[in-house]
Amino acid sequence: MNVILSIAKTTIGEAIRRRVLLIILLIGVLFLVIAPGLSVLSARSSYTVLVSFTLGVIQLTSAVIAIVLTVYLLPNEVERRTIYTILSKPVYRWQFLLGKYLGAVGALGLMMALMTGILVLVFKIMQAEAGMDVVMTLARAPMMYFVQMSLLAAVAMFFSTFASPIVNFFLTGGVYLVGTLFSPVFQDIAGNNSVNAMVKTAATVIHTLVPNFAQFNVQNTIINSGSQLRSEQMYYLQLVAYAFAYVAVFLIGGMMIFDRKEV
């Protein structure tokens, strides 16, 4: 455990200094800060627009950071030969991979926490009367995004055990897009008895292989805070369990490939 945490810690330290990630983060933060100005242009209730816009910014920024951060983790280690020194110590490869992954998740968590903090601050300034409950509601969506991004990082980690960073970028990005945009569609087809059996099977396979990223978008419950889900806690817990299961599958798959890989 010690070994894994050490590797994770070092990975975080390095990731939060990566210039490209900081630039992406800065752009995200910039959008969050100017968001109140933009929402004035909208006719709809400015609160609703502001919430969905800023949450969208956080989600998109986090997704880009998650992918860019993770696709380079293993290739950089090999290229700079740091991995050789580490693997010549009593460190199993799975420990190395897990440490790297946890480091990525840690760095991602820090960056997302920063954005969430700024988001809360922006709303505080905008609506001085906003109470603790509004803040909590606002912080909840990024928490689910964090779960989503941890899953995305696991996908990127898996691909990085055999694909080059550029290929991986598109693979992971593709999985994210499919999982976000089409998952509800596939889910629908898979559950529909009136469609052709083959189509149904195909939809089921895709729906099973590609994680459903869309379900982590809990924005709607925030925007329409009146229509509270009855068992909200339960729903979140299920999502976390879902993500955890997929993370485990991707990581174990990655470990199996990485174990045989020539580095």
């Binding site: 070092t10 330290g13 390095e14 200094r17 700079r80 030969r81 740091t82 050789y84 020194t85 010549s88 110590k89 009593p90 460190v91």
Partner: peptide, 18 residues
Amino acid sequence: SHKRLSYLPEKPYYYEHM
């Protein structure tokens, strides 16, 4: 056996922020 040996790679590189 890795507990009992060590390795200095060719042209080593270390995490520069440390």
